[in-house]
């Protein structure tokens, strides 16, 4: 049994048939082949699957695809400029070595962009608290925090 679903992903209109039990992350990764969004857990804990839904960060493993009907989704593939130039937050992660294996990175960047938009002049403690839903096993977070602070500043300028 499938059901029709229409939404926008990275600016493109998408209409597909999905099983009702399909998760948003499965739609993105498997149906649309947008594999930049990762799956790191099955309990909504790691944040590797974070995307933007109507501009706000959500964990795409914790919602059904059909719940995104009519919404606008942005994934990591939709963040850089069409020219390929990195978004200021992506550039800050590179500059400050905020990634190692890269697996948590798309989720970190999506969450960080939302965090930066949500409040001007984030403190380090606010960034650490704001990243609470994103696990990284590689970096020890220090350079991610640095990157988010720098990226947020760059987004404002």
């Amino acid at each position: 049994m499938t059901t029709p679903l229409a939404l926008k992903v990275n600016g493109n209109a998408v209409s597909v048939q999905v099983e009702p039990r399909t998760l948003l992350v499965q739609l993105l990764r498997e149906t649309l082949r947008l594999t930049g969004t990762h799956v790191g857990c099955d309990t909504g804990q790691c944040g590797a699957c974070t995307v933007h839904l109507d501009g706000r960060a959500v964990k795409s493993c914790t919602m059904l695809a059909v719940q995104a009907a009519g919404c606008e989704i942005t994934t990591i593939e939709g963040v850089a400029a069409p020219s390929g130039d990195l978004h200021p937050m992506q550039a800050a992660f590179k500059e400050h070595h905020g990634l190692q294996c890269g697996f948590c990175t798309p989720g970190m960047v999506m969450n960080a962009i939302d965090l930066a938009r949500s409040k001007a002049d984030l403190s380090e403690a606010e960034v650490r608290g704001g990243l609470d839903g994103n696990l990284c096993r590689c970096t020890g977070y220090q350079n991610i925090v640095k990157a988010v602070l720098a990226g947020a500043a760059a987004m404002r300028s």
Partner: peptide, 16 residues
């Protein structure tokens, strides 16, 4: 030196 591998990871174009 900034990492050569970062661009693909930051743009979701790595291949895991």
């Amino acid at each position: 030196v900034r990492r050569k591998e970062d661009y693909r990871f930051l743009t979701g174009s790595g291949t895991y």
